[in-house]
C-alpha cells in the first residue's frame, strides 16, 4: 500500500523567480505519512517546518512558492493542482489547525457562521443540516451547550475553547490528513494536555493522518508515531519516534533532546546547543549545522546525503552513537 502523503524533494523559496533562486525556506525535503499515522515535524523557529506545512496545503504567502519537488497526496501531485482543485481538497480531505487560536477565527463573524460555511463549502446541503452538523461537531470537541455557542462570537470564547472550535472545523469533513501547526504552543499547559487528548481521540475515530508541527519534543514523544527533524530548511533525521528519541544519530537531534529540561540532572547546568540558527540567506558551506557541531571536521564542508538505515535516516557523516554519547 502506498503512503497517503509522499513529499519528494520539496523546495520552497521566498522571492526569486524564473531561473533566479530566492531564499530556500524548505530545501530538498522528502518524507511520507501513512494513513492514520501521526508524524511529528520538529525544528526551531525558522527551520522551515511551518512553511513545509503551508506548502502541502498550498497556502504559502507571497512571495513564497514551491520551486520544485512533488507532493503526492493519494497519488496526485498537489504542486501541479489548479487553484480550484486545491480548494476542493482544503477542509475536505486536507485540513489545517493554526498556532494562535485568538487570531484563527474571524472576529466579526459568529462561530456558527464560520462553521456552517465550512460545511457548505464542500457539501450542498440545506443550511439547517449544516447547522446541525456544526452543532454536533462542537459537542464532539467538548464544548458545552453547543446550540447557544453557535451564535456566539470568537472573543466570547477562551483561547482553549477557540482552539477546540478550530479543531471541530478541521474534523468537520473527516479529512484524510490534518496539518496541525503548533496548535498548543499558545495555550496553557493544562489546556495543552486536554487539546492533545481531544486530538488523539478524534484521529483514532476518524483514522486521520496528522502532521504535527512543533518544537516541543515532549508532545512528539506522547503523540507521534514518526518524527522528522528539520534544521535550516533541511531534514536532518527521520524515523520512528521511540527509536529516534532514545537513540538520536544526528548531533542536532541529540542536542535538542539533551536540552529538554527533564533530561537534565538536578543541580546540573541546563545543557544547550551553542550558537544560533544560521540565517537562511547566509548558510555556511556544507552541513548547515557545522559551525555549532562539536563533531564537525573538513568532511562536513560537503552536504551529506540523507542516508537511510532501516526505517530511519539521517544526514550526518559523524553520527552520534549510544556509546559515544554517554
Amino acid at each position: 500500500m502506498t503512503a497517503l502523503l509522499q513529499v519528494r524533494n520539496l523546495v520552497t523559496e521566498f522571492g526569486g523567480a524564473k531561473g533566479r533562486s530566492g531564499i530556500r525556506a524548505v530545501n530538498d525535503v522528502s518524507f511520507s505519512v501513512e494513513r492514520g499515522r501521526v508524524l511529528g515535524l520538529v525544528g526551531e523557529s525558522g527551520s522551515g517546518k511551518s512553511v513545509t506545512g503551508f506548502s502541502i496545503i498550498r497556502l504559502l504567502e507571497r512571495p513564497g512558492r514551491i520551486a520544485s519537488g512533488e507532493i503526492l497526496f493519494d497519488g496526485v501531485d498537489l504542486s501541479r493542482n489548479s487553484e480550484e482543485e486545491m480548494r476542493r481538497l482544503r477542509g475536505k480531505r486536507i485540513a489545517m489547525v493554526f498556532q494562535d487560536p485568538t487570531v484563527t477565527l474571524n472576529p466579526v463573524l459568529s462561530v456558527g457562521t464560520q462553521m456552517i460555511e465550512a460545511v457548505l463549502a464542500h457539501e450542498s446541503v440545506s443550511k439547517d443540516i449544516a447547522r446541525q452538523r456544526a452543532r454536533d461537531a462542537l459537542g464532539l470537541v467538548g464544548i458545552p451547550s453547543p446550540e447557544e455557542r453557535l451564535a456566539a462570537y470568537p472573543h466570547q470564547f477562551s483561547g482553549g475553547m477557540r482552539q477546540r472550535v478550530a479543531i471541530a472545523i478541521a474534523f468537520l469533513h473527516k479529512p484524510d490528513l490534518i496539518i496541525a501547526d503548533e496548535p498548543t504552543t499558545a495555550l496553557d499547559v493544562t489546556i495543552q494536555s486536554q487539546i492533545i487528548a481531544e486530538f488523539q481521540k478524534l484521529t483514532e475515530e476518524t483514522k486521520t493522518a496528522v502532521i504535527w508541527i512543533t518544537h516541543d519534543l515532549a508532545i512528539v514523544s506522547r503523540l507521534a508515531d514518526d518524527i522528522a527533524v528539520m534544521y535550516a530548511g533541511r531534514l536532518v533525521e527521520t524515523g520512528p519516534v521511540s527509536e529516534v528519541l532514545n537513540d538520536p544519530r544526528h548531533p542536532y537531534t541529540a542536542g535538542l533532546i539533551a536540552s529538554v529540561p527533564s533530561q537534565n540532572q538536578r543541580g546540573e547546568r541546563l545543557r544547550q546547543i551553542d550558537g544560533m540558527t544560521p540565517a537562511l540567506n547566509r548558510l555556511p558551506q556544507g552541513c548547515s549545522f557545522r559551525r555549532r557541531c562539536e563533531r564537525a571536521d573538513d568532511g562536513c564542508l560537503v552536504i551529506p546525503e540523507l542516508a537511510p538505515s532501516g526505517d530511519r535516516s539521517f544526514r550526518c557523516i559523524h553520527p552520534v552513537t549510544k556509546v559515544s554519547a554517554s
Partner: peptide, 21 residues
Amino acid sequence: QDYVKFARAKGLRERRVIAVH
C-alpha cells in the same frame, strides 16, 4: 491575518473569503 488564511484552509471559494471575511 490568520483568519483569512484559515478561511481559505477551510476550502472556501475565494469570492466568499473576500466578500465575507
